[in-house]
Design a protein around this nucleic acid. Sequence first.
DNA 1: GGATCAAACGGACCGTGGTCCGGTTGTATT
DNA 2: AATACAACCGGACCACGGTCCGTTTGATCC
Lengths: 190, 190
Amino acid sequence: MADSPPPERADAARNREIILAAALRLVETRGVDCVTMDTVASEAGVGKGTLFRRFESREGLMAAVLNTSETQWQASVIGGPPPLGPGAPPMERLLAFGHSRLRANLVSASLIEAAGRAGQRSVAAMSFANMHVRYLLRELGVEGDLPLLATAILAPLELVVLEQQVERERIPVERLEAAWDDLVRRVVGH
Amino acid sequence: MADSPPPERADAARNREIILAAALRLVETRGVDCVTMDTVASEAGVGKGTLFRRFESREGLMAAVLNTSETQWQASVIGGPPPLGPGAPPMERLLAFGHSRLRANLVSASLIEAAGRAGQRSVAAMSFANMHVRYLLRELGVEGDLPLLATAILAPLELVVLEQQVERERIPVERLEAAWDDLVRRVVGH
DNA sequence: GGATCAAACGGACCGTGGTCCGGTTGTATT
DNA sequence: AATACAACCGGACCACGGTCCGTTTGATCC
């Protein structure tokens, strides 16, 4: 491993928090796509350059905002009450997981969209889900290319796919859930 | 049905062709994300406003460019040689379809990305694929919510998913194909 | 062939994401 | 505590997507 990166300076860390808080506040009140970088900068009382140094891009900032709720969700998967959390049989957990992920994606749709590539790829947000599904599949005795099988199961829950179905084709969420359950049962093999 | 929309004026139609040709030329030579709207406008010898009136947005223009190759692909699915085209048994056709779609998505990745929402949703590009898969599934005697099952099968071929796997995780295309075949067999039930 | 009117045209203009660089502030060293 | 250096700060600046509106052009009807 290379030497660890130099620690963040105190003022820098403080500004990160300030900016993040300001961004979150603005997103909640005005809605994601009314939040410009200039707005965030002035709301946080810093220069625009600071925003971009800390968060790389608008997408990066949005990803950081998204990350807070995402972390919360992950916590409830790892340690929350069953059937989402541990304690329930694997199949029940898997189904609960899918439903929860589906709802979560729809709820923070606009934020995910604004986060773009930075949202899904980095921070291993998708990687966590994949790992969890892989674990449950193994638990269920499924054989094969587990990483890719997990990806295949997760793919229909991706926002791009969901939006097409919910917004364009007006399919109710319950039907999406039912169809996903069906998919999972077929893949697992009952 | 409402009265049909007024026909396009001659100069408008001519300009659409000119613009589309210019855009295609520029995309091929310089690469998608070096193509600005101003560039296309001056290359086509028209004003910027004309571009936006014809194609709504940059995404719309890119979608139109993409549409040409997409149409070609659809033709080879409907009427090309087997196993992609008609003549082969349904399962073979389905697998060939998946592989072909996967490759096609990767080939025009940047264009699809540039087309954004306009690319996948409109023009029923995705709708065509869904319809075709639905047809093949029915042919294979699969029962259940066919439209959603088709979507679920198609989802892992979506560009967002593929890019994560190919670029981020360095998974070779052959393995993706094999995994997709596996998925399909599980869903169909051999 | 004019007259008429809707539709298409084009380029000046604006907002926003993103960069850059001179000045400032925090941190390590003696 | 003073010095030195790196990291941080901020706002002027740029490029690009998108809009607007006065002008031109092509279809239609007499």
